[in-house]
């Protein structure tokens, strides 16, 4: 990845900027903002992401001097590398709690199907309320992280309405997903309706940053349940990694297609 000497200094700047961002974000620390129905929790990962965007060469022109195109590319590769120790740490919380995990086994496995809830909520909004076309199929069939996006690319091509919908949700999720997943669980917990274990095991949606935000928010809201929250979230995230693509391929996408054809019987694929 560092072919030229210029690329090497770009890489050095990249890691130094990240180091600086990390230090500032951790110094600010977790902040709580009480609102009527619960507490909005701001996490260091949010500041880190926001600061990253702020210094992104596509936004802040001056940083293009330090961060070459190659450095930005390296940054993309570093996301998957840097999330690894986090994922490993998360895994180590499961082992000690393994008997409790097995106890919650059926709920843990079946909640994977609950991810289809996106079709229940987002599909009607997209099709009936916003009058979207076939973009809605790609946009609402799943949470549209990388494996789901790959499935859409494979089936329809990204150069299609379905592809545009999936990419739109992917890009939006990348930009605001951490925020949404940090804010939502503590508020839902504040309703006092759901078992905190249910809130925890739903955090595994197949995205490392959403997982971090979701569990971070929950642990900040219910600190005495930290161990079981982490363990259940980690276990469900692994299940999603293992099953997400297949649920999408064999259940969610055919179901969304079928619903779309029911909702718009007159429409033919020629629309694109």
């Amino acid at each position: 990845m560092t072919g030229k000497t210029g690329a090497a200094s770009g890489a050095l700047y990249l890691h130094l900027i990240v180091l600086a961002i990390v230090i500032v974000s951790e110094l600010i620390g977790i902040q709580r903002l009480p609102i009527g129905i619960g507490t909005v929790i701001f996490l260091p990962i949010l500041y880190a992401f926001a600061l990253g965007i702020l210094f992104n060469p596509a936004i802040f022109k001056a940083s293009a001097k330090f961060l070459s195109r190659d450095a930005v590319k390296l940054s993309g590769a570093m996301i998957t590398v840097a999330i690894m120790p986090f994922i490993a740490k998360f895994g180590t919380t499961v082992g000690p709690q393994i008997s409790k995990i097995i106890e919650a086994g059926p709920a843990l496995v079946l909640q994977e199907l609950g991810n289809l809830g996106t079709i229940l909520i987002a599909f009607p909004v997209a099709v009936f309320l916003l009058r979207m076309g076939r973009e809605a199929v790609g946009a609402t069939y799943s949470i549209d992280r990388e494996p789901n996006l790959a499935l859409i690319a494979d089936k329809y091509g990204l150069n299609s309405p379905e592809g545009a919908g999936a990419m739109g949700v992917y890009a939006t999720g990348t930009l605001i997903g951490t925020f949404v997943f940090a804010i939502m669980p503590p508020i839902v917990h504040g309703l006092g309706v759901f078992d905190v274990r249910a809130l925890a095991m739903s955090c595994g949606v197949g995205s490392g940053s959403m997982l971090a935000a979701c569990t971070g928010g929950l642990v900040a809201a219910v600190p005495d349940q930290k161990d079981i929250i982490l363990a259940l979230a980690a276990a469900s995230n692994i299940l999603t990694y293992a099953t997400g693509l297949y649920v999408g391929m064999f259940v969610a996408l055919p179901l969304t297609e079928w619903l779309y054809n029911k909702a718009r019987p007159s429409e033919r694929r020629a629309q694109a």
């Binding site: 709920a107 799943s142 669980p185």
Partner: peptide, 30 residues
């Protein structure tokens, strides 16, 4: 360029994915 509609849909997707799991998990835990 995806526009405001996609932002609304994306938020619904995230809420739906999470709450769907919460409801199913809570049910089976009970």
């Amino acid at each position: 360029c995806s526009g405001w509609k996609i932002v609304i849909v994306a938020i619904c997707v995230m809420i739906g994915t999470y709450m769907g799991s919460v409801v199913v998990a809570d049910l089976f835990l009970r």
